[in-house]
Amino acid sequence: MTSLGLVQIVVYFLVLLAVTKPIGAYMARVFSGQRTFLHPLLRWLEVLFYKATGVREDLEQRWTQYAGALLSFSVFGFLLAYVLQRAQAYLPLNPQHFGTPNVSPDLAFNTAVSFVTNTNWQSYSGGESTFSYLVQMAALTVQNFVSGAAGIAIAIALIRGFARQQMKTIGSFWVDLTRATVYLLLPLSFVGALVLCSQGVIQNLHPYTGATTVEGKTQTIAQGPVASQEAIKMVGTNGGGFFGANSAHPFENPTPLSNFIQMLMIFVIPSGLMYTFGKMVGDTRQGWALFAAASLMFLIGVFVCYPAEQSGNPLISRMGIETSATDTQPGGNMEGKETRFGIAASALFATITTDASCGAINGQHDSFTPIGGLVPLFNIMTGEVIFGGVGAGLYGILLFAIVAVFIAGLMVGRTPEYIGKKIEQKEVKMAMLAVIATAASILVFTAISAVIPFDKNSYWNSLGAATANVNNGGPHGFAEILYAYTSGTGNNGSAFGGINAATPWYNLTIGLAMLIGRFLFLLPLLAVAGSLAAKKRVATTTGTFPTHGGLFVGLLVGTVVIVGALTYFPALSLGPIVEHYLMHQGKVF
């Protein structure tokens, strides 16, 4: 590791720590219906939404009604995104004349699901060569806002479950969705887009520019409304880039400073929501305990990934090539990384984007060393609770907090409590349902794709067997399939690379994995919210397990890691772990 790399990591964490409380306190005010400094500017817009849609601001919902509203909203979002893609040839804002053949039905399905579930897995080769500006803006960017807002709404509903007592309702999905969009995502994205523009991110509706290279060849330089999509892509932890190269593209992420800002934008809401949790349940120490657990896991991930990448491939140094960092070269493993970012900023970005359910990339994870690549993979497998996606990270770590206090309760033979609520059969059943649904999706789809045969030139997979779509053999090829379903189920959306997933088989099954990972994970947690809201708060006694101290933080981290390790260790052993040992024996894939 280099001192400059370490400074980048430390500065990043300190800035994150500094912004957590202000943004968290602001969100607590927004979702408690209190006035904020943005109300004079934006309250009219919130009211306009209610008037236009007939939503009553004072009408709250039971958890099933809340879930019904979310599901109906998502169905509508899916249908709109699907139709816009398939009909783009007949719609305006299409200067490149992209047609229906650019978007097959399976690709439209995958993309619509991907953006509705806040995943932004991009099965297409690049938005700049597939979608019109209208699709990019009205289908993809709009979903970036509302799917992120929906995730925040669910987290707020779960917080209310802990904060309330003897109530049947957990808030209104429509009001939470509107407030998350109007007071949080819109202003943050607006400011973020302006800052990114200042760094050179483009924002226009121009036709693509033709250029002649020094070799005399013609090159098409894509244009478009990039900054506006880029900002919400990060703030909403969506991750779907305007360009296929995502945040490695110089028009999306031109400078080391824009890279730093983008990394900060990914964590700002998830980190702040942990403070919001503490604030809304009346004990900010509870929020800081979650923050401490997430920080610990985040730093462990960074300090496994970064040294692995900085060490590079031992086979190259055995050939007598200098792989250590010097004044004139970064050393280590630079394959698949942008020279303007280097190893530390690429390893940090990869860790952050997979801790959160963002999925933006500034380097190719497929080109990481086996251990460096294992970190992003394992981060997603933890359920993306290391700060996590907007809303999804908080309700994910609260799920593990429920499991952790349940385990602690079993150890001492006492009914577990968390934030003054007794954790009983219903809560534990729901938490385990969420864990099992996501694990089953990852492992079952991966296992099927590792063995399923198809005829060459068949509709489902024209390349033949599903394993024919990977570019590498052995454990690396297996890791590519495992990563695809892990990324889809975890609603991350980042691609390991090295797999051609643009076939009906992968589009359909990864699409289903995204739906399972989103809805079969959050619906049980909404049930937990409803169950907890109806309970009385019990008084703290000397026998109550304190959930704001180091012991709880350790137990929570242990639960996350152990559940992840026990569930996925066999699969990881067949992929990056065995690949790491084979690499040291001189065999690479």
Partner: peptide
């Protein structure tokens, strides 16, 4: 072929959401 495929994929998605609603009701009763 394409309109049939469009219908196929739309139905798959709608079926998932219907199943999710049934799952919600089941969670409520559990």
């Amino acid at each position: 072929m394409s309109p049939m495929l469009d219908i196929f994929y739309i139905i798959i998605a709608i079926l998932f959401f219907v199943a999710s609603w049934a799952f919600t009701k089941a969670c409520d009763k559990l």
